[in-house]
Design a protein around this nucleic acid. Structure first.
Length: 618
DNA sequence: TTAGGGTTAG
């Protein structure tokens, strides 16, 4: 009878049959409960298995280990820890099969302290000489950035298998020590495909993409069997380099070697096309995939966003929800940035409500992108409210708030947030200072801007980038100090770019400085020869200052070059309808009213002391 | 043991 029941337990599949067997086991054969738990774990019906498990008076370590392993495999790490704790409480023997899955859970829970406790426990029970335990611990320390611990375990190991080497290579890689990783790789007796993969990813993670690709070439030459993981890394490298040719030849390698295009690999290929600007091809890859996970969707949405296709990004976001893929923080951050740039208040409100309803608003990445979005559509009070309610703030949070306040004209508040950032131990980076300098620029605080520029170098060891120089040039220009701006440009430690010369040109136009305008245009023509907008500006400056001949010369040159200026327009969305405004367009339904309002605003701004520029075509 | 996605400025 018992043997028949065991056979039955192993053969049933339907939950209703399990219930009947469960009843039989509970009432007549309690000793078979362990068999039932194992069978339920293999289905897997893990919740049901747990239910039966909890009623076994003294489950042995093998059964507990199986349950822990299953929880770890299903990423139910809290549950795995709970079983582990109850094993310790009830003195169930911890063996070399218990430690690896529980260490894996500690890693997933990002709990270094807990992992160290498990390590101590393993030492106490003499398990730290077991190869599986050692490998698990090495992997744990390697991924937790604890190089010293990983090294100690490695040195203690008797026979070192390739896995131990690979873990240590990753540990060196994570701590940025590429040379040590390479040395270890060179010394390894038996290299597996994973060893090569670890080295490639080591170079890639530390920014040496060319060397990573060279290792891949060597791997092919030496017939070391690149696999799906190798290729996923290679595509990610091609994406970072924007190297479509390398990507295409890697795709050929996949086909020639019959590698399986799994979800991760296909997503990496798609990402390669996206980063190379081949959005249509990326979309074809996306449509071709038979399985897509949340990363696939997020990558495609982000790809649309980064390639200037906000409508497609929003559309795909809707499809993602319709297919019941729950958007995670990464997908939300991309879509928030799309909404922020769309200028559509309705789209912003909608996504804001969705995020609240999903309980995602407390995620630090999502909240930062959310407050940035609100400040970009002018709702600075909502933005500030989100900022105040955030339990954690990272550098991006502080930066977004500072920049948001600065661009909304609240310079004093931007400085106050910066002071609070420093006081609470926030670490400013180069972007923080772009925000602060923008605040100075908008408030006309030239001396303060210069002081901040010095302070960032001296107190925070931040090397000024071209963006910071551009802010200072803008600061001088807005204050009408064109000569100072020009002297500053001449003293810059980096080559001035088109942004710098554009600022000077715009200021020269406002202040009618022909000499500096000519100089800026000369530089812009060198750096951006395909554009011609600066010649149009120059011609306008000549006309406004009665230099008719010069104006004609420029216009003739533009005509000879057959330059056609694309008409710029502004637009606004009201009630989901887009309204465009073009210079000289009289076809608007309420044209007279629109022009009347604009003229009224122009007049009012003159009353409050603004020098209204009539040459802007109004 | 080794693999894929995101936000802040200009």
């Amino acid at each position: 009878m018992v043997r028949d029941l065991v056979r039955l337990i192993h053969s049933v599949k339907r939950p209703s049959h399990f219930k009947q067997i469960h009843a039989l086991v509970t009432t007549a054969f309690p000793s078979l409960a362990s068999f039932l738990v194992r069978r339920l774990l293999s289905v897997p019906l893990v919740d049901y298995a747990r239910e039966v498990f909890d009623r076994i008076p003294q489950p042995d370590e093998d059964l507990s280990n199986s349950l822990i392993s299953m929880y770890a495999r299903l990423s139910l790490h809290e549950e795995a820890m709970e079983v582990f704790r109850s094993m310790i409480r009830s003195d169930v023997c911890i063996d070399s099969y218990t430690v690896p899955p529980i260490i894996k859970s500690c890693l997933s829970l990002a709990d270094l302290g807990l992992g160290k406790q498990v390590h101590c426990l393993a030492i106490g029970r003499g398990l730290d000489t077991d190869a599986f335990v050692q490998t698990a611990l090495m992997n744990f320390y390697s991924r937790s950035g604890e190089l010293a611990f990983a090294k100690t375990i490695f040195e203690k190991m008797g026979t070192k298998d390739p896995i131990a080497y690979n873990c240590l290579i990753s540990a060196y890689s994570n701590s940025g020590d590429v040379l040590a990783a390479r040395k270890l790789f060179d010394e390894m007796p038996n290299r597996s495909t994973a060893s090569w993969n670890s080295l490639i990813s080591c170079y890639a993670c530390n920014g040496d993409y060319q060397e990573a690709l060279r290792i891949f070439e060597r791997m092919k030459d030496e017939k070391c069997n690149p696999n799906e993981i190798t290729l996923a890394s290679v595509f990610s490298i091609c994406a970072k380099l924007g190297d479509l040719n390398a990507g295409l030849s890697a795709e050929k390698f996949i086909d020639d070697n019959n590698l399986c295009r799994n979800t991760i690999l296909s997503t990496a290929i798609m990402e390669m096309y996206l980063k190379c600007g081949a959005v249509e091809e990326a979309r074809r890859q996306f449509d071709k995939m038979n399985k897509r996970d949340v990363v696939t969707w997020s990558a495609m949405i982000a790809g649309y966003a980064q390639n200037g296709k906000p409508e497609q990004a929003l559309e795909l976001f809707e499809s993602m929800k319709n297919e019941n893929i729950k958007p995670n923080d990464v997908a939300l951050v991309s879509i928030l940035s799309v909404c922020a740039d769309s200028g559509s208040v309705e789209a912003c409100e909608e996504i804001g409500c969705y995020i609240e309803s999903q309980g995602m608003a407390s995620n630090v990445f999502v909240a930062s992108a959310l407050l940035d979005m609100y400040s970009k559509c002018g709702n600075i009070s909502k933005s500030h409210q989100i900022f105040l309610n955030m339990p954690q703030k990272d550098t991006v949070t502080w930066n977004s708030m500072i920049a948001g306040l600065a661009t909304n004209g609240l310079s004093e508040d931007a400085f106050a947030v910066y002071k609070q950032m420093i006081k609470t131990g926030g670490r400013p980076n180069d972007i923080t200072f772009v925000g602060l300098l923008t605040a100075c620029s908008h408030a006309g605080l030239v001396e303060m801007g210069l002081e901040i520029f010095r302070h960032m170098k001296i107190d925070h060891e931040i090397v000024p980038q071209i963006e910071h120089y551009a802010c200072i040039v803008d600061l001088f220009c807005r204050a009408g100090r064109l000569k100072d701006a020009y002297d500053f440009i001449c003293g810059m430690e980096v080559e001035p770019n088109a942004v710098i010369w554009s600022s000077l040109l715009s200021a020269s136009r406002i202040h009618m400085n022909i000499e500096l305008a000519e100089l800026s245009v000369k530089k812009l023509a060198e750096q951006d020869p395909d554009s011609s907008w600066y010649y149009v500006l120059l011609s306008n400056i000549y006309s406004s200052t009665s230099h008719w001949q010069e104006a004609l010369n420029v216009q003739k040159m533009l005509k000879d070059k057959k330059v056609q200026k694309a008409a710029a327009y502004s637009w606004v969305e009201v009630d989901n309808k887009l309204h465009k405004f073009l210079v000289g367009d009289s076809s608007l339904p309420r044209n007279t009213e629109v022009h009347g309002t604009v003229n009224g605003l122009a007049m009012q701004s003159t009353w409050v002391g603004h020098d209204f520029d009539s040459s802007l075509g109004l």
